Simulated scan of single mutants.
Amino acid sequence: MIEHVLDLGNQLKKELETSKNFEVQSYKDLLIVGMGGSGVSGDVLQLVLNKTTQINVEVRKTYGIPKVTAQRKPKCLFISYSGNTEETVEAVNDAIKYNLDWSVISSGGSLLELAKEHSRPFVKVPEGLQPRAAFGLMTRAVMHYVSPDSGLDYLEKCNQAGTYLNEIVANQAENELFSQALQISKEINSKTSVIYGGTPLTYLVAQRWKTQINENAKSKAFVGYMPEIHHNEILSWEANKEDSKKNYQLLFLRSSDENSQIGKRFELTKEIIGDKIDISEIKNISSENIISNLFHLTLLGDLVSVYMADNLQIDPYDITAIEKLKKLLKG
């Protein structure tokens, strides 16, 4: 898995195949449907559009399209790396039934077949990876669908971010990110990770860290959003303090873009519960390129999860439980 993590920069820079005469027209309402490692790229598109446009964006991570949603006549983007994710395929069929405007991102499978059959726009990504290992490719793919109203070239931002990541990878010995990731992996060890973000970007990355720790290290992880956790979860560390200290690791993903009160809340959290749980604090870079900011923390978290797998002698590629569940659902 480490080779895929180190390839994130190249993935962000890779030119992708698109349908003939591919073009994205302006839109005001976008419904994105995708699951797991594919669905998170939809979260990235939502992050970008929320930052640069007034477009209404909904990311749906379940079966189908509700009738009330279809009545809005949103533009639809269906994302599935394999092209066979059953929740997403059902949603495509609903889009066809409701006569909605829709597009696809996939490496093949039913989604790509349906797009070609109905002459719908698509972006095709290279096949042969597990979805979570294709995050750079899927992020570049969704940037093809940024509305022209944003006024920014996000494919070029992907190129720039890819160059930035490749420079980090090429200078591993001199870049502290790798030693930082190894240290964090040792701090977590076999504990349950609880990851807090305080901006839309760091909360998105917190969710990526969670799923990478789940899948690569086969370990439990949960996320929280500052300041919401101050209205409930902060009290959870009061009971069974010994268990908290022994079995949990709290991780703060910090950003210079935080609201000043968010920054204050992080500091106060350390004061209030610092004696009850061990805390790792991770500060992001501050770049004008949102994709670079996103993937700096992503690279760090991906490395943490792979190092954890190595520390715990876990095979990061093993997804037996997921495959068994899929077979049982079909049975």
Score class of each variant (00 low, 15 high):
Glu3Val: 12
Gly9Met: 05
Leu12Glu: 04
Glu15Tyr: 04
Leu16Tyr: 02
Thr18Gly: 10
Lys20Tyr: 10
Val24Ala: 08
Lys28Met: 01
Asp29Glu: 05
Leu30Glu: 04
Ile32Trp: 10
Gly37Ile: 05
Gly37Cys: 07
Ser41Lys: 06
Thr53Pro: 12
Gln54Leu: 13
Ile55Cys: 14
Asn56Gly: 08
Val59Ile: 01
Lys61Cys: 01
Lys61Trp: 13
Thr62Cys: 09
Gly64Leu: 07
Pro66Met: 09
Val68Asn: 12
Gln71Ser: 13
Pro74Ile: 04
Cys76Ala: 11
Leu77Val: 14
Ser80Gly: 13
Ser82Val: 06
Ser82Arg: 04
Asn84Phe: 06
Asn84Met: 07
Glu87Lys: 09
Thr88Ile: 07
Val89Pro: 06
Ala91Gln: 10
Trp102Cys: 08
Ser103Lys: 14
Ile105Pro: 05
Ile105Glu: 03
Ser107Lys: 11
Gly109Pro: 03
Gly109His: 06
Glu113Ser: 14
Glu113His: 15
Leu114Asp: 08
Ala115His: 13
Ala115Cys: 12
Lys116Asp: 09
Lys124Asp: 01
Val125Pro: 07
Leu129Asp: 05
Ala141His: 07
Gly151Tyr: 03
Leu165Ser: 01
Ser179Arg: 08
Gln180His: 05
Gln183His: 13
Ile184Phe: 03
Ser185Trp: 12
Lys191His: 05
Thr192Ser: 09
Ser193Pro: 04
Gly198Val: 06
Leu201Gly: 00
Leu204His: 10
Val205Ile: 11
Gln207Tyr: 11
Trp209Arg: 03
Lys210Ser: 05
Ser219Met: 15
Val223Ile: 15
Tyr225Thr: 13
Glu228Pro: 03
His230Thr: 02
Ile234Pro: 00
Ile234Met: 09
Ser236Arg: 09
Glu238Val: 13
Ala239Thr: 00
Asn240Lys: 13
Lys246Gly: 01
Arg254Phe: 00
Asp257Ala: 08
Gln261Val: 15
Phe266Tyr: 06
Glu267Asn: 11
Ile273Gly: 03
Ile277His: 01
Ile277Val: 15
Ile279Asp: 00
Ser286Leu: 07
Phe295Glu: 02
Phe295Arg: 10
Leu300Gly: 01
Met308Asp: 07
Pro316Arg: 08
Asp318Pro: 03
Lys330Asp: 01
Lys330Ser: 04
